[in-house]
């Protein structure tokens, strides 16, 4: 069976999480969740993974605030954020398009992004849609800023931006993304055409590494079963039904 785009994204996320002790996954995030489970399986089960919305993969007992307090204590190494808009300085917008507050399009809201972006060392931005309307020159509303002024206490921020077309790394000193690799079927040109902001790039741009045999077996077996508890439809439709 050929490697699907979803499997490539899961494997790429697992590689980005290498070395993390505790990874937390927010709501509506089946691919990041599967990526975290894969990273845990590859790392000999030493990683802790907490998945919002899961019963089995949720070890928090102190209410909604615990995830945030846990991040503040420095006990969370990686988290995932998305964005209706993401700009070239790593600013993300989860509120809407147009002039606040009435807006032309209203999205749900900022959730914990305004806080976790500062507290969690390795924030992975994940957005499958890679188009000029998502990757914009400047966001209409800053839910969470990619970088902060000197003197602002901050231990976390964007680490990478993974889309359906490519993987960017974020350079905090340069305040810019750098194109690391393009997924199969994409090129430096096709990525540039679909991106509304400027960025640096490797030359030539390598292809995003495919998952190896071991990763694929885990994705199609154990990881699928683990993610099925929280995202049954995703596990069945995207990762195949259980053997």
């Amino acid at each position: 069976m050929p490697v699907t785009r979803t499997e490539l994204l899961i494997a790429t996320i697992a590689r980005l999480l290498e070395g993390c002790g505790h990874v937390a996954v927010g709501a509506s995030s089946p691919i990041p969740g599967a990526g975290a489970f894969l990273a845990r399986a590859l790392g000999g089960d030493e990683m802790r993974v907490s998945v919002l919305g899961s019963r089995r993969h949720n070890f928090f007992t102190d209410g909604g605030r615990e995830l945030f307090d846990c991040a503040a204590q420095g006990r969370m190494d990686a988290f995932f954020l998305g964005g209706g808009q993401i700009d070239g300085e790593g600013n993300i917008n989860l509120v809407g398009v147009g002039d606040y507050p009435t807006l032309d399009v209203r999205w749900p809201g900022s959730f914990g992004s305004a806080y976790l972006y500062f507290l969690v060392p390795r924030v992975i931005l994940f957005r499958e849609e890679h188009s000029p309307r998502v990757l914009v020159p400047t966001v209409d509303f800053v839910s969470a800023p990619g970088v902060s002024e000197e003197g602002v206490w901050r231990r976390g921020g964007p680490h990478a931006l993974l889309t359906g077309r490519c993987l960017f790394a974020f350079d905090r000193a340069a305040r810019r993304f750098r194109l690391e690799s393009a997924h199969p079927g994409e090129s430096a040109e096709s990525v540039a055409e679909a991106t509304g902001f400027g960025y640096d790039a490797a030359d030539p741009v390598p292809e995003t590494a495919a998952p190896d045999r071991r990763m694929l077996d885990l994705i199609r077996g154990r990881v699928r079963d683990e993610i099925a508890e929280t995202y049954p439809a995703f596990a069945a439709e995207v990762l195949g039904t259980a053997a």
């Binding site: 605030r65 606040y100 500062f118 800053v142 002024e149």
Partner: peptide, 25 residues
């Protein structure tokens, strides 16, 4: 959560990290 915790403790405010530089603020 934090603003509710301030009321729990009967104090007028609580500090919180992050949020600086956002349009929320």
């Amino acid at each position: 959560h934090t603003a509710l915790q301030a009321s729990e403790k009967g104090v007028p405010f609580m500090p919180l990290r992050g949020i600086l530089g956002t349009d929320i603020l």
